[in-house]
Simulated scan of single mutants.
Amino acid sequence: MKPGIGEPEGLELLSSQLSDSTINTSIPKGLRTGLKSSLIPAVILDKKLNILWENKKYKELFVNKKRALPVNLVSDFTPFIDTQKLGSIISSISSPEKGYSYKGRLESKNRNRITVIVNIMITPLFKAGETGNPSYYSALFDDITKEHNAMLENTFLSLLEASKLKDNDTGNHIKRVGEYSRFLSEQLFGKAGYDEVNREFIENIHFLAPMHDVGKIGTPDDILNKEGPLDDKEWAIMKEHTKNGAYILQAYPDPMAKDIAVFHHEKWDGSGYPFGIAESQIPLAARIVAMADVYDALRMKRSYKEPFTHAESVSIIRKGSGIHFDPDMIEIFINIENSFNNIFESLKDF
């Protein structure tokens, strides 16, 4: 029977030759030692991309560090390695014109951690006297997750700083909205019906929730800073900040950014703006940020109102169940309302 994924050719022979410290004897001892002690994540692959050996640094990239080999490389980078990507990799490592090598970028997703982003370099390992396609390959992984995320965040933080210059009422409001949103999301992690809430969702909403009003960059100052109520024309212009924010954040790789910006003023009963969508049509992240934003707005002193107490704010939000807010979110909020108050007090404007 022709071996498939997870059934590499010569596995029976290799099983007696491969261990944590010993790889196939045709691979030079210096290379084996170097890969084992390397600070760079590394694996040995067969021609079907089955992982026959992995060093400690590679294991540290993933949540499940204890497993029986062989496993296929695809399983570590699903769904990023789809059929097209898999075909491209195998074609490249089978091509003498490409030096039986492959260089590219992969992403690994897991609900218990943020996405791991790596640059991968696969190069051939020829057995003694072997010609033609190699039987084995080494793969080295450069973990660029931190650098990639830092560059992305720094780019969009500049937009956040620009929006703060436009809005005199911002203060610590945006920081608190991020903290409320993260805390509320943490209560949903592992809860039935909230499969989309994973560790990356929680980290992203903490970063992106403060950008909910970034579209106000395009709102005229005389409207944004007007003391007293807006007239109908001014209010129509003000509401455009949701669409402006979505346009500004459309380049962010996670659609959560755009969803929060455009939908955080939608209401559960469909009476919100800009589109009047209702209930579960409103993305979860936007529903979370909506509650966080309203709670904090109630607690703040604004040019047109005095601040409400924590108890008053909770009462107003509870009355909005099924009208402004997702009823399930309200139930969760009631159980953690004191934590919202603690966040407000710890990041209070002076």
Results as ranks from 00 to 15, higher is better:
residue 3 P to A: 07
residue 4 G to Y: 03
residue 10 G to D: 13
residue 12 E to R: 06
residue 17 Q to C: 14
residue 19 S to D: 15
residue 21 S to Y: 04
residue 22 T to V: 15
residue 24 N to A: 15
residue 25 T to S: 15
residue 25 T to K: 14
residue 29 K to L: 15
residue 30 G to W: 06
residue 32 R to D: 15
residue 44 I to C: 15
residue 47 K to A: 12
residue 59 K to E: 14
residue 63 V to Q: 10
residue 68 A to T: 11
residue 70 P to A: 12
residue 72 N to D: 13
residue 79 P to L: 06
residue 81 I to E: 14
residue 94 S to F: 05
residue 100 Y to D: 08
residue 108 S to M: 07
residue 109 K to P: 11
residue 112 N to I: 08
residue 113 R to D: 01
residue 115 T to R: 01
residue 117 I to D: 07
residue 126 F to Y: 13
residue 130 E to K: 06
residue 130 E to F: 01
residue 133 N to W: 00
residue 141 F to T: 02
residue 146 K to Q: 06
residue 146 K to S: 11
residue 149 N to W: 05
residue 150 A to G: 04
residue 154 N to Y: 07
residue 156 F to R: 01
residue 164 K to C: 10
residue 165 L to F: 06
residue 168 N to K: 05
residue 169 D to Y: 11
residue 178 G to S: 01
residue 182 R to N: 00
residue 192 A to S: 12
residue 192 A to K: 12
residue 193 G to L: 00
residue 197 V to Y: 05
residue 198 N to H: 07
residue 210 P to S: 04
residue 212 H to V: 00
residue 214 V to C: 09
residue 225 N to F: 08
residue 227 E to Y: 00
residue 227 E to P: 01
residue 227 E to S: 01
residue 234 E to Q: 15
residue 239 K to S: 14
residue 245 G to S: 00
residue 245 G to E: 01
residue 256 M to G: 08
residue 270 G to Y: 02
residue 274 P to K: 12
residue 279 E to G: 05
residue 283 P to N: 11
residue 287 R to I: 02
residue 292 A to F: 01
residue 293 D to I: 01
residue 307 P to H: 00
residue 308 F to W: 04
residue 330 I to W: 00
residue 334 I to L: 03
residue 334 I to Q: 06
residue 336 I to C: 01
residue 347 L to E: 06
residue 350 F to T: 07
